[in-house]
């Protein structure tokens, strides 16, 4: 009987096994969207996915929410955690206003402006008092919530839509904070300001479209 080649050597180290598990998981995760998008999701799963997808489906929202995390990281503690705590509550307040029928003026312009202003603050590494940072982020969060928090498809679970919406927003902030950790190193500080420039440029593009 000939020895067949093993997938992993029997003496594989824990590190090698861990790598193998990571590769399998990554491959599996990569395949998920192909399966999920084969059919239209309905009911509860549709509610969660619809809510989760809303904040990440618009680049203007993504830019602003990641920028909140980036700016928080640049301002460091306590802003790094206060901004992501304040943003979801104010965003949901905006959603509540929208669902209550309260109209806000120039919502799309405000959303684009949020990316422009936050991007500019990161680009210039501008430090403002904590209260001012909270007010600014909270103000823009209201418009983001008003625009996206109310767009649930009929027949879906409202609570799962809301959970998905809030989790996606929080993860975008976390992504911004994660990227913002490069602020700890000198070259990272320059790169972070560069990222602010990218956010600002994106915001200008969306502002142009909103005003056109």
């Amino acid at each position: 009987m000939t020895d067949r080649p093993r997938l992993l050597p029997i003496h594989a180290s824990r590190h090698q096994l861990s790598m193998a598990v990571q590769i399998v998981l990554t491959t599996w995760l990569l395949l998920i969207p192909l399966i999920a998008l084969a059919h239209v999701e309905g009911g509860a799963a549709g509610g969660f996915l619809s809510g989760f997808g809303h904040p990440i489906s618009g680049l203007d929202h993504v830019l602003a929410m990641v920028a909140v995390g980036l700016w928080g990281a640049q301002l460091s503690a306590p802003a790094i955690w206060l901004l992501p705590v304040a943003f979801p509550i104010m965003m949901a307040f905006g959603g509540l206003l929208g669902l209550s029928g309260v109209e806000l003026p120039a919502v799309e312009v405000a959303i684009a402006l949020s990316a422009v202003i936050l991007g500019a603050l990161i680009l210039g590494a501008i430090r403002v008092p904590l209260a001012a940072a909270l007010l600014l982020v909270g103000f823009f969060a209201v418009f983001h919530g008003h625009a996206h928090g109310t767009e649930m498809t009929a027949g879906q679970s409202a609570i799962l839509y809301s959970i998905g919406f809030v989790i996606a927003t929080g993860l975008l902030h976390a992504a911004g904070i994660g990227i913002g950790f490069i602020h700890r190193w000198e070259p990272g500080r320059v790169a972070l300001r560069g990222a602010g420039g990218v956010v600002m440029a994106g915001g200008v593009f969306f502002l142009w479209n909103a005003l056109a």
Binding site: P88, A92, F165, I167
Partner: peptide, 13 residues
């Protein structure tokens, strides 16, 4: 804050 946000949206619904 996430719980408060979810419930605030629920209030709207």
């Amino acid at each position: 804050s996430w719980i408060a946000a979810v419930e605030m949206l629920m209030l709207g619904w």
